[in-house]
């Protein structure tokens, strides 16, 4: 194929490509049926990961346990209220030595590791300390556990 034929053809292709890209993106018929999302979410709900269950109250008449994920959610909610903080992955562990045995609520220790992103320009030490206090008080108030160690790692910045 001669060069003088190829160039206009490629230009034409580039134009058709742009059109296809824009049209497909806006074409309402080029979306999967809603049943696809429904079944994906059904599987996700059925297989939802709650993590392990941490005992928060034990007695002869039964006990109360809270899932790691429930505590994680609590921590996200707490962090969301602080400006300039986006709470990301979170790990909750029982602190060593407090595993078993009956005990009143409010005495079990847990440790929390939380990764966060902060808005650029955030005062990191101050924000991290506020967040730590907030997490400790929320965990005490909501689930009666004592967050003995709260490790916060700033992994990212986000633009505001």
């Amino acid at each position: 194929m001669a060069l003088d034929e190829t160039i206009p053809r490629l230009a034409k292709l580039a134009e058709a490509t742009r059109t296809l890209r824009d049209n497909d993106a806006e074409d309402a018929s080029l979306q999967p049926h809603h049943a696809v999302k429904d079944s994906v979410m059904k599987v996700a709900r059925a297989e939802v990961r709650r993590g392990s269950l941490l005992p928060v109250y034990q007695a002869d008449q039964g006990g109360i346990r809270i899932s790691e994920q429930a505590i994680t959610t609590l921590i996200w909610f707490g962090a969301d209220a602080l400006p300039g903080v986006r709470a990301r992955r979170c790990r909750v562990h029982p602190a060593p030595g407090t595993a078993d045995g009956p005990r009143p609520a409010g005495t079990a220790d847990i440790s929390v590791s939380l990764r966060i992103a902060v808005a650029s320009g955030t005062n990191i030490p101050r924000t991290a300390e506020l967040l730590r206090q907030r997490i400790i008080s929320m965990i005490t108030a909501h689930v009666g556990l004592n967050a003995k160690a709260v490790n916060i790692t700033v992994e990212d910045f986000y633009d505001v």
Binding site: M41, A44, R45, V48, R49, R50, G51, Q69, T72, T73, W76, F77, G78, D80, A81, R86, A87, R88, R89, C90, R115, A117, R134, S137, M138, T140, A141, H142, D156, Y158
Partner: peptide, 29 residues
């Protein structure tokens, strides 16, 4: 509860994608 913390809900639309991915990784539906 004795200590009622204000609870603010951040909707997924208000979060960046990386944060949403991290929360989905931790099982947030």
């Amino acid at each position: 509860m004795n200590e009622r913390e204000p609870v603010v809900l951040k909707r997924p639309d208000d979060l960046d994608e990386a944060t949403l991915v991290a929360r989905a990784q931790d099982g947030n539906l």
